[in-house]
Amino acid sequence: MRDGGPDVEGGLGIAGPRELGDVRRFSHEAMATSFEVYAVHPDERYAAQAAQAAFELTDRLERELSRFVPNSDITRVNHLVAGEGARVGPSTMECLVIARHLFDLTGGAFDPSIGTGLASLELDADDFMVRATIDGVQIDLGAIGKGYAVDLMAELLEEWGLQHALVHGGFSSVLALEPPPGRDGWPLTLSDPGAPSRVLARLSVCQTALGASGVRKGDHIVDPRTGEPARGRKAAWVALPRPARAGAEASAEGPRMAAAAVTDALTTAMMLLSIEEIAALCERSPGLEAWVLPESVGGPPGEADLIYFGGRL
């Protein structure tokens, strides 16, 4: 365990990891960030092997999903011209289908094609074929891939019998499974990404995914719907309970719910959607919660209040 204060990054962190007792921590660099597994298990070696298997899975996903890897599925998709198709692996297809679903759900505020035409890609999930109907669609799964990896890592850890675990990818995507024994949840903090010591909320969660998105001072994210830089938000967090059976198949209404992939993607959208839209989305989606930290107007910097959406209060 790291010494001192909470493990925090980008506005989401674990409170006082040192006080968690017998939790083991394993780290691995992938997807340009640090993935970590926190797990409770009596056998150190066994836990390390399970974590290693989860990290190898992450590496495999990176090879398939990264647009920076010259022979990934996504690079192949990004090279398609109108009328061409590419066969992709099951993980790529699933991640694209979830992404497409969230694109629709958020009216394009979450758009892994950043305005280049996600809707013009045909996803044939039966045949694992992606077909382009126009030239130049460029997919970047950066805002969903980490979450998706975290979902699959968690399923793998459960397969290994590591139920009491938490997995995260650079803290922008966290998935809490069963809590450490004797606790009712994994203690998480939401803090100001510009001032990590300013804790805005404390949560205790299990079987829940939490995603965070934030900008540091002077940074901005581009609204894919307009191509303009978005302003007014400092950070957004989204929480979603994990479905009872994580590996459950897709239903008729949509793709299977990979909770961390969904929260990862939604946090990006919540940086852009209006307060009304966020409220409406949370209302329509039972269990979905969101926190938004607006950019402070006037007043001392960093003092704006957190806005909460969802059924918790």
């Binding site: 070696r45 066994y46 399970a50 397969e159």
Partner: peptide, 10 residues
Amino acid sequence: VTPDLGAPDR
């Protein structure tokens, strides 16, 4: 360095 390969108990 990586740990040796293991297998799920079950």
